[in-house]
Design a protein around this nucleic acid. Structure first.
Lengths: 223, 223
DNA sequence: TTTTTGCATTCTGCATACAAAATGCAGCCA
DNA sequence: TGGCTGCATTTTGTATGCAGAATGCAAAAA
């Protein structure tokens, strides 16, 4: 018997989470804006029950804040929080780097190299949006190649918050060039499976990203 | 005018999350067990709406698994997942250790020392439950003293999953003694604010914990 | 004119009702 | 006897209804 793809319908609350998250990350739902249930229900074409479930999930991701008896608002992008998040992500990526060197197959590393190549093309073209997209994919690919699913999940969750800041922060040409150069070093360490070097490079890369975002958001913050 | 404490009622779904989480962590809701909505509604004395919101949140914590159209089951305690989680927690605690040395006030460190003292007492008494409780408090206090709220949150979330395994895994006398000794070293490095040493000690401590839990659960796992 | 107070409206929080999917069992057929 | 099929029951997924809290406005009081 031939295996055929099973029919699958996603639960509405999942769909709603994804849609709302995109809206928030892209800034179409701005920080501080209230989430009016009636309105969103109409826009998404669903009822309040799955919508409310979705909002609760976004609250755990930190994208919205729940005000008792007053609904939910899109959470503010606080530079300090972004800084703290990037600090954690830096540590996680450094760990991922070590694990990748130890566990990842050559095939996976080749896939990452291919992504890197495309990202470099975007950079050469001056395609910022395409660059961001591939940059994201590379970092996600690294944490996924670590073979540690918990690590990958945790990273993804933290990432949603930071993405918003990336949308808001503007990238200087110098920083952009430097970031691409850093990525090239990262790729080389990855292909040599030089765990110690890779770990350091990834931690530094995230630290630079942190500095850039904070500078662009015009604020200093600890941790 | 004198400020008085505001009247506050917790939302039902929050209460439900806490209650269910406790039940799962303590094993009263066993891995693999189905969460029957009708039943749980009766037990908690609430309706399905807040209960379902709670279940969705527990799913993001990884304590339950959602089966489309078939409800939710308490997720299995897979040694590999525990291993992966402890690996991440080890890295996070190491980071926390560094930050604590840099940022924490003397008062906070004294508080942790006090907790440590009580934990040693529990150990001397052979009070395993009390030991676990204080052990938990110490580790949480360290990540909280880091001043990085995102780090603390992430750590807490991962912790819920591991707590279950700790309940199931039994601790040998030797490992128990060793763990207390490690804690003493940790305290000393903390009080000296020796970041590098503290970082290493915490990472090692979690690695040992990992080895112990895995051994006790009778399994090997990577990452 | 400014502040306060009461009321109408709107919104959220929770409960319940309805629809669709899954489960279990009995009967039927091989 | 063994397995499949169809129906009744149970359970989940979604929508809707109801009560209470918050908000805004207007009228009254200072």
């Amino acid at each position: 018997m031939q295996a055929i793809a099973p029919i699958s319908r996603r639960p509405l609350h999942e769909e709603a989470v994804d849609r709302l998250r995109d809206q928030i990350v892209q800034g179409r739902l701005a920080p501080g804006e209230r989430l009016n249930e009636r309105e969103l229900c109409q826009q998404l074409g669903i009822s309040r029950t799955p919508l409310r479930e979705a909002i609760k999930l976004l609250a755990t991701e930190g994208l919205v804040e729940l005000l008792p008896n007053r609904g939910a608002v899109v959470s503010a992008v606080e530079p300090q929080r972004i800084a703290q998040t990037l600090t954690v992500m830096g540590t996680l990526e450094a760990l991922a780097g070590e694990l990748v060197c130890a566990n990842a197959g050559d095939e996976e590393i080749r896939r990452i190299r291919a992504l890197h190549g495309r990202m470099v093309t975007m950079h050469a073209r001056g395609d910022l949006a395409g660059y961001f997209r591939h940059n994201q994919m590379i970092h996600l690919a690294i944490v996924e190649a670590s073979g540690n699913a918990v690590l990958a999940n945790t990273y993804r969750q933290l990432n949603a918050n930071v993405k918003r800041a990336r949308y808001m922060a503007n990238l200087s040409r110098e920083r952009w060039d430097a970031a691409v150069a850093e990525h090239e070093s990262i790729m080389q360490a990855l292909e040599k499976r030089d765990a110690a070097k890779l770990k350091r490079l990834l931690a530094d890369h995230l630290a630079h990203k942190l500095a850039q975002v904070l500078k662009s958001l015009g604020a200093r913050a600890a941790a």
